[in-house]
Design a protein around this nucleic acid. Structure first.
Length: 781
DNA sequence: CGCTCATGCACACGA
DNA sequence: CGTGTGCATGAGCGT
């Protein structure tokens, strides 16, 4: 099938409407199949998912960028994958988009011209169906675009935007199973035919539709041949007509009827915007029984979709808001509003091959952060040429503007929502990395995605919450609402609203709070598309770059970790925001937690090759880049005894045993810890004390480090391993308490015991996070 | 009851 | 005597 797709190019107006694969699914078409076929081109553009909102077409999750039109497509009329026109918030977000070929198509010059011609003819023939009836833009803006936020916002993306985008992105990930392209393509054929019909100004045109389909299916088209298709179709018109005549109730009639009845509401652009891949059509037709009858049926479906879509658009148009983000998000939510809730499931079910753990529009589960098709079997969006492989993409950690851990400036800035870092106490020591941002990596606490704390392999899904003492600070890439959203339809508008409200609060708060670092970081962290993509697709994969999970569970705790983003990394100053941060977003633990051999740790310097060093230097220059390979190992809230004169820090046993080199001797090993913020290497000693029948693990020679970073009780340290360089990285995170008493004054009671140590927890969400810990307010330093 | 871990404290060592 | 080292104790928490 590959390469055979006939690309019928219909001049596209501003935006393409994407058909959802679900439609095909409904038809029995295997999206995946189509997907395979499609990787090169997208033919169908449909803006409105609404099409799915009827019985026949189960509502598909809105795929912001579902259209398969991969940017790579040879299509003469290229579709812009990335850009989202500002005018159409709904359109796929570019960023996420990357892998998702965004269908936004601004007609290319050629296309534009052609389009114009067609358009003119269209008007000429069907004056009644005039553009006036339909606002193409408005239409386009409707659905699919959960992704709403155009990344290219000049000036920078604010948190809100980011969130929208990310959220959107999340949705996409899960949607990968759907092969939108396939759907689109099929539709496009119809639309193409439609247009031709229009050009001919005759009913015969409708007849041609069938013919075209037939032709299209037979024609092997490479991108360049696409145009030929039309011509061929026309040439075959006579023959086709003859065939059509045999069937009075043929597609032509159907189409004509439909056109008549909808001319008021559907514009030529609408029709033109529909592109369906040949293969898709074929598949769909086959599923429908094949033959003209099937095609007719398919046509009906498509028309229905168009109609519905149009209506949907209109509805959406009515929505006006100053906040484009809101709009986008609303659209994003549309799926939930789908009148036919059942439809979605049906769609999903229809395609067993797709592992839909989530709704497409739903954010991916933390652990699912990585939607590596290979790993999870989830569909992966067709990556645009420029975009990195999905697998390599770190999962989103949350919408972090800055890395809480003081990561250097990152290009990516997730929304604050996901930056929340919570401190929970009272839970068992970490089972997962404290920074469960993984899933949200895209939200990236680490700007570069670079630092992704992966949850322990054995707890890929963890990160729900951090209750353990050693897991006090956690990022919740997703807040509870987010999670709800992911959970399913139940998560709905309400949740969305709350989430949005929270987001706004956070954003404003963040801005106001604004310490320079944050704001600066925010600016610096404007995500690039690649980054976004990476974050999106990251998941639990073997890929080191992939960050682990994202804590999905809402953290009840009051403590929030406010990552200062890059600043935090660079400066090692991390700020904790109290209630402001609804959720903590732990760094995404890297899934692959290969423990560096002790000797590795000790000798990493010697072991590195010149190339590595060069790379490292370069990466260092680039700020965070080097951190993309960081794995979260553990974190600990510093106790008085840890920051005292003893110069030693008690490490959480479990995490130490799990992620640090195994110690054979009580003297332990010397371990070089590079300060993430300063790149300074501290030679520390990792050892243990026999303690009753157990051991107590210590990190010694920490006095200088603590002093250098001005760490105090209540602050915490985070230890990562640099996968690339086989070295350990450490970062001190300062937490300042708000309130009458300065943090220095506070003397943690015993009750605080739990609060201090933190390690990434897995599934702690279930465990009652000790809210107790969270009661100290932390302010940004 | 067992485990973890914060920290008290004894001891050693050096100034 | 001050400091560092290492062990022991016991609070807090989970089971």
């Amino acid at each position: 099938m590959k390469g055979e797709q006939v690309q019928v190019q219909v001049p596209v107006h501003h935006q393409h409407q994407d058909l959802h694969a679900g439609d095909l699914d409904t038809l029995g078409v295997d999206p995946r199949e189509m997907w395979l076929d499609d990787d090169q081109e997208t033919t169908l553009y449909v803006n409105d998912p609404s099409i799915f909102y009827n019985d026949k077409f189960p509502p598909l999750p809105d795929f912001p960028c579902m259209s398969s039109s991969s940017s790579s497509s040879s299509t003469p009329a290229p579709v812009k994958t990335v850009t989202c026109s500002s005018s159409s918030p709904s359109v796929s977000s570019s960023s996420s988009a990357a892998s998702w070929a965004v269908l936004k198509s601004d007609a290319e010059p050629e296309d534009g011209e052609r389009k114009q011609q067609q358009h003119n003819s269209y008007h000429h023939q069907y004056s009644q169906i005039d553009d006036q009836t339909v606002d193409a833009h408005a239409l386009s803006s409707t659905v699919s675009m959960e992704i709403s936020q155009p990344l290219d916002l000049s000036g920078g993306i604010d948190c809100m935007d980011e969130m929208g985008t990310f959220g959107y992105m999340d949705l996409f990930e899960s949607n990968e199973c759907f092969d939108p392209s396939s759907i689109f393509q099929s539709d496009s054929l119809f639309m193409e035919q439609f247009q031709q019909d229009q050009d001919n100004q005759h009913l015969a045109m409708a007849h041609q539709l069938q013919d075209h389909h037939e032709i299209d299916t037979t024609i092997q088209s490479n991108p360049q041949q696409q145009k030929q298709v039309v011509g061929q179709d026309e040439e075959n018109t006579n023959k086709d007509q003859s065939n059509d005549k045999k069937d009075p109730d043929d597609m032509a009639m159907v189409f004509l009827e439909w056109l008549r009845s909808n001319r008021e509401t559907v514009s030529a652009e609408d029709l033109r915007s529909v592109k369906i891949k040949k293969s898709t059509i074929e598949c769909a037709a086959r599923r429908l029984g094949g033959g003209k009858e099937a095609m007719k049926q398919l046509l009906k479906l498509v028309l229905e979709w168009v109609q519905t879509n149009h209506l949907q658009k209109r509805r959406s148009n009515s929505i006006t808001t100053k906040d484009s983000n809101l709009i986008a998000q609303q659209q994003y939510q549309d799926p939930y509003q789908n009148p036919n809730p059942n439809s979605i499931p049906r769609v999903l079910e229809s395609n067993p091959s797709c592992n839909f753990t989530q709704r497409p529009w739903m954010a991916p589960p933390p652990h699912a952060a990585a939607y590596d098709p290979a790993a999870g079997g989830l569909l992966v969006p067709i990556p645009p040429p420029a975009s990195p492989p999905p697998a390599a993409y770190p999962s989103m950690m949350g919408y972090m503007t800055a890395d809480p851990f003081g990561n250097g400036p990152s290009s990516y800035q997730p929304s604050p929502e996901y930056h929340h870092h919570m401190i929970d106490s009272g839970q068992p020591s970490w089972q997962s990395s404290p920074f469960g941002m993984v899933g949200t990596a895209p939200y990236g606490s680490f700007p570069d995605n670079s630092i992704h704390l992966a949850p322990p392999q054995h707890h890929p899904q963890a990160f729900a919450g951090y209750s353990s003492q050693y897991q006090p600070y956690q990022y919740f890439p997703g807040n509870g609402e987010r999670q709800l959203m992911r959970l399913g339809p139940s998560a709905t508008k309400e949740a969305r609203k709350k989430r949005m409200a929270r987001q706004r609060r956070l954003v404003s708060h963040h801005r106001h709070h604004g310490h320079q670092q944050n704001s600066q970081q925010l600016n610096n962290e404007m995500p690039d598309h690649n980054y976004l993509q990476q974050t999106r697709f990251v998941g639990n994969t073997t890929d080191l770059n992939c960050t682990g999970a994202v804590p999905l569970q809402p953290n009840p705790g009051n403590w929030f970790y406010w990552p200062t983003a890059t600043a935090a990394l660079s400066s090692s100053a991390v700020t904790m925001m109290p209630s402001i941060m609804p959720e903590a977003a732990p760094l995404p633990p890297v899934q692959q937690m290969d423990r560096p051999a002790s000797n590795q740790a000790q000798n990493y310097n010697q072991g590195r090759s010149a190339a590595q060093e060069r790379q490292e230097r370069q990466e260092r220059r680039q700020g965070w880049k080097s951190e993309k390979n960081l794995k979260f190992l553990l974190q600990k809230v510093l106790k008085q005894s840890d920051v005292g004169s003893l110069g030693r820090i008690v490490l959480p046993k479990k995490e130490a045993e799990t992620h640090l080199p195994e110690l054979d001797a009580r003297d332990g090993i010397s371990i070089a810890m590079e300060d993430i913020g300063t790149s300074r290497v501290w030679n520390m000693r990792y050892r243990y004390w026999p303690n009753n029948k157990s051991r107590m693990y210590l990190l010694e020679n920490t006095g200088d480090f603590v002093r250098a970073n001005g760490l105090q009780e209540g602050d915490f340290i985070v230890i990562y391993s640099d996968v690339k360089c086989n070295k350990y990285m450490i970062r001190g995170v300062k937490v300042r308490q708000e309130g009458p008493k300065s943090e220095g004054n506070k003397r943690p009671g015993k009750t605080q015991r739990n609060q201090h140590a933190s390690t990434p927890a897995v599934n702690n969400g279930s465990s009652p996070s000790s809210a107790t810990t969270a009661h100290k307010k932390i302010t940004v330093k």
